[in-house]
């Protein structure tokens, strides 16, 4: 940007940071009161969270393992939202991506080793995009609410996965499909941990999306449609086409998350593959203000909170629901501050 804009940006980021810190303090205090009420020393609890989240290579790596799919689903939500559409279906698109990846890797297709991984990536992206294309078409052709349709299609996707796991692709041993060929395994980034190369895919996707939004004609069209769809129409933009492509692209990004879980973590398609990564993606997208790069930061922070609170639960016997309360408090506070900002 220009020289004039830089200090402004820095100031904006500083005030953002102060605000964010304040919010964390408030929510930690509020959650501390809840912890106190249940007879747990909040300070000990927080130390335990920090230790479990950041205290070891293992801990850090688990933060990243959680963050990887969430980055991708958050990007998916962001891309759709930037042109004014809600993608509640990232979870379903993730499943479709996973199904495609397993379908290719589970020796159903005989591909030479080095081609298998690229085929799985492309397949996962296309499957997620195709799954998202359905609600996009229904919305653009018939005006059907994409919120409802994508939400419903999540259940379809999970059911489809369950059917494949129990039926045609059953391993017969575990509640999962049979394993994929080893050529379809994503390499680990840190030996001995579960952090895998899909993290790089997610980071590249975030950088790519940020670039597309800021610098390309397509991104400009998406932003314009999201900011004022009437002006976009009057300026001659093909609004429906841009929205369709964005929504399908959003589905593809979520599909990549599914690919990563299969190729990087499980090496098969287990029952309950996603603990709601698609929905977490919505939260991350909103907290990151639809900024792809901030989504990476927020996803990592949520990952740390998740891993850390899991550790606290094991160490102190705090019920997991309390952990959810802390997370919810934090999110509500941040979103509440956003609303107040908009008022003023």
């Amino acid at each position: 940007m220009t020289a004039v804009a830089a200090p402004k940006l820095a100031a904006a980021m500083r005030s953002q940071a102060v605000l964010g810190l304040g919010l964390v303090v408030i929510s930690l205090t509020a959650a501390g009161l809840v912890l106190l009420a249940t007879g747990v020393n909040p300070l000990r609890a927080y130390v335990e969270i920090l230790r479990s989240a950041f205290g070891s290579v293992d801990a850090l790596s688990e933060d990243l393992v959680y963050a990887t799919p969430v980055i991708l689903t958050a990007l998916s939500v962001i891309l759709a939202f930037r042109c004014g559409l809600w993608n509640i279906g990232a979870d379903g698109q993730l499943y479709l991506g996973a199904i495609a990846a397993v379908g290719l890797g589970f020796n159903h297709v005989d591909l030479p080793g080095p081609l298998l991984l690229p085929a799985m990536i492309v397949g996962a992206f296309v499957a997620g995009a195709a799954w998202a294309a359905i609600p996009a078409l229904l919305r653009l052709r018939f005006g059907a609410s994409e919120v409802i349709v994508t939400l419903m299609m999540n259940f379809l996707a999970v059911t489809l996965a369950t059917y494949l796991i129990g039926g045609p692709w059953a391993s017969g041993i575990t509640p999962a499909t049979g394993p994929i060929a080893p050529a379809g395994f994503l390499p680990s980034l840190v030996p001995g941990t579960r952090v895998n190369a899909n993290l790089l895919v997610a980071l590249a996707a975030a950088a790519g999306l940020a670039f597309v939004m800021k610098r390309t004609v397509f991104g400009y069209r998406v932003r314009t449609i999201g900011a004022n769809i009437h002006a976009a129409r009057f300026a001659g933009m093909n609004v429906d086409r841009v929205r369709f492509l964005s929504f399908a692209g959003a589905g593809g990004l979520a599909g990549l998350a599914g690919f990563g879980e299969v190729a990087g973590i499980y090496h098969d398609l287990p029952n309950g593959l996603s603990p709601g990564y698609g929905y977490t993606g919505i939260v991350v997208a909103l907290l990151a203000r639809l900024d792809p790069l901030w989504a990476v930061v927020v996803a990592f922070a949520l990952g740390a909170l998740n891993v850390g609170s899991g550790g606290m639960q094991r160490a102190l016997g705090v019920p997991v629901s309390l952990v959810s309360i802390i997370e919810a408090l934090l999110i509500l506070l941040i979103l509440g501050t956003r609303l107040m900002e908009r008022r003023t």
């Binding site: 400009y220 932003r223 009437h230 002006a231």
Partner: peptide, 13 residues
């Protein structure tokens, strides 16, 4: 405001 400009965009956009 509705059809000719995007109020939230800078003049450049």
């Amino acid at each position: 405001h509705r059809d000719a400009v995007v109020l939230d965009f800078p003049l450049t956009d």
